[in-house]
Design a binder for these strands. Structure first.
Length: 358
DNA sequence: TCTGGGGTCCTAGGACCC
DNA sequence: TCTGGGGTCCTAGGACCC
């Protein structure tokens, strides 16, 4: 029996959860975001397939979505608790499949590691189990590692299964743009294009030492391998250990006075601290996320002199960072992040350069 | 036309040490 | 006037993901 990696991804997860509890919304363009008021400053979390047909997608400001949306579109507020509980139900169901190791990546996706001669059968069983337990549909990517499984899922959507391995990698991906690779964003795509590397095959054929010179020893090697679909194949169910917690908020009106900004900084820093304190771990670093007009987000960080378990220390650090902002430019506060000391010995999980939880 | 909220990991460059 | 080589740690910021 061979080892396989399956990537399970819920179809339009948030919108699907909303339709599930309000069946009259089936077939209607549903847009979930912010407090559900399209006149407010907020963005789209998820749009149903019906809404996507009008060019509405996640990350888009609600005000823009409102202009594109047809008259019968429905805007709904984000309901984290509902998605958390649906997510937990999905994960629990998948964990119950025989012989699988499950690694959670996000609310609506995970990897399954399984030894089998028929991965399509396991994929079908996963889809059926999730549908029966939750009423939700998902797509499954089958791969010989995490990178290929993850990319395969896109070809399976919606409600399908797709297998991507070393055998069909170049046939499927070779002529596609580098941006379609997991971990290649707009900036890296540009830097690759500047060196004449536009397609996946060109990336695979590129000179690794040139990529190392451009991106550094780890990312250079990683991107080169990505061109051939190379990536980690071990699915790891080690419990997640958070490294930091942050609080961000969208102010409906920009803060204008120093007193307003200080009050907001103290509030957000205090909340971020509380999330860390709830885990019983000291804070070692504080970051501010701000936006300079017109649209340039920046992060400023400061290491604390000592790891602290005092709320006020974190608030003071945030205020100090706030005082160091460029006063000559229009700046909008977005949020505060508190970075925690790792537990002794860390979490024992080996990292790969793909950002986020892999 | 107006830009979320929650995260992680990597790199460059300076400081410091032997 | 000219000024090593290598290693590690820290800080600040960048990029990407869901």
């Amino acid at each position: 029996m061979a080892d396989w990696v399956l990537h399970v991804d819920m179809d339009q997860f948030i919108a699907a959860v909303e339709v599930l509890r309000r069946p009259e919304l089936a077939g209607v363009p549903v847009i979930v975001g912010g407090r559900g008021d399209p006149t407010e400053r907020a963005v789209v979390s998820t749009a149903s397939y019906e809404a996507r047909a009008f060019g509405i997608g996640s990350g888009m400001p609600l005000k823009i979505a409102a202009r594109k949306a047809p008259d019968d579109a429905v805007f709904l507020p984000v309901d984290h608790e509902a998605y958390e509980s649906a997510s937990a139900q999905v994960m629990e169901t998948l964990r119950g499949l025989p012989g699988v190791v499950l690694e959670v990546i996000g609310w609506d996706e995970c990897f399954l590691g399984v030894a089998t001669d028929d991965p399509e059968q396991v994929a079908g069983a996963a889809q059926a189990a999730v549908l029966e337990a939750t009423g939700l549909h998902c797509s499954v990517g089958i791969g010989d590692n995490k990178v290929r499984a993850k990319i395969a899922t896109e070809f399976g959507k919606p409600r399908g299964v797709f297998r991507l391995t070393e055998a069909n990698w170049f046939a499927v991906m070779g002529e596609r743009g580098t941006r379609e690779l997991w971990g290649v964003g707009p900036k890296v795509q540009k830097r690759l294009a500047a060196r004449g590397i536009d397609t996946v095959r060109e990336l695979a054929d590129a000179d690794e030492s040139e990529l190392v010179a451009e991106f550094g020893p780890r990312m250079g090697v990683w991107y080169h391998g990505l061109g051939s679909g190379i990536g980690p194949a071990v699915v790891d169910d080690t419990p997640w250990v958070a490294r930091s917690h942050s609080r961000e908020t969208t102010f409906q009106q920009n803060l204008t006075t120093a007193a307003e900004v200080e009050a907001a900084l103290a509030e957000l820093a205090g909340q971020a601290f509380d999330d860390c304190a709830a885990e019983g771990r000291p804070v070692i670093r504080v970051h501010l996320k701000v936006r300079y007009a017109p649209f340039e987000t920046k992060t400023l960080g400061r290491k604390l002199a000592e790891p602290t378990t005092r709320r006020q220390d974190v608030i003071d650090a945030a205020l100090e960072l706030g005082a160091s902002l460029d006063a000559d430019r229009e700046v909008r506060l977005l949020g505060v992040r508190a970075e925690m000391a790792m537990p002794a010995g860390g979490d024992g999980v080996e990292r790969t350069p793909v950002r986020g939880r892999i």
